Computed example of a mutant assay.
Amino acid sequence: MIRSDNGTQFTSKAFANACEELDMEHERIPPRTPNMNAHIEAFHRILEDECLSRHEFQSDVEAY
């Protein structure tokens, strides 16, 4: 199972198809309730502050 907010990246058909292909259940939190997904929200904030905003990546591979 994967839990996410209702951001556009998680409501796309491509994401839904990937979940189906990987046999993953997708659970969405209610709108405007980031506290229900606090651990991942904190992780994304730390990732952005500590890595993504400090470096300029030339490709997806380099960022990975």
Rank of each mutant, 00 (worst) to 15 (best):
M1Y: 08
I2P: 01
I2K: 07
R3E: 03
S4G: 06
S4T: 07
S4A: 09
S4L: 11
S4N: 00
D5K: 02
D5C: 00
G7Y: 08
T8Y: 05
T8S: 12
Q9M: 04
T11H: 10
S12L: 02
S12R: 04
S12W: 04
K13T: 10
A14Q: 10
F15S: 13
F15C: 11
F15V: 15
A16Y: 01
N17K: 10
N17C: 09
A18E: 09
E20A: 13
E20H: 08
E20P: 02
E21G: 04
E21D: 08
L22K: 06
L22D: 07
D23Q: 14
M24W: 12
M24P: 09
M24L: 14
M24E: 07
M24C: 11
M24A: 11
E25S: 08
H26Q: 06
H26T: 08
H26Y: 02
H26I: 11
E27R: 03
R28V: 13
R28M: 10
R28F: 13
I29Y: 03
P30L: 06
P30C: 06
P31N: 05
R32P: 01
R32S: 09
R32C: 07
T33V: 11
T33C: 10
T33H: 00
T33N: 01
P34F: 01
P34R: 03
P34N: 06
P34D: 05
N35H: 14
M36F: 00
N37K: 00
N37Q: 05
A38K: 14
I40F: 03
E41I: 01
A42H: 14
A42M: 04
F43W: 13
H44R: 09
R45A: 12
L47T: 13
E48Q: 12
E48I: 07
E48N: 11
D49R: 12
D49I: 15
D49K: 09
E50F: 12
C51D: 05
C51S: 03
L52N: 04
S53A: 14
R54P: 00
H55N: 15
H55A: 07
H55K: 15
H55C: 02
H55Y: 11
E56W: 14
E56S: 15
E56T: 15
F57T: 10
F57W: 09
Q58M: 12
Q58V: 13
S59I: 10
D60S: 11
D60P: 13
V61I: 14
V61A: 14
V61L: 15
V61P: 02
E62Y: 15
E62N: 09
E62C: 04
A63N: 08
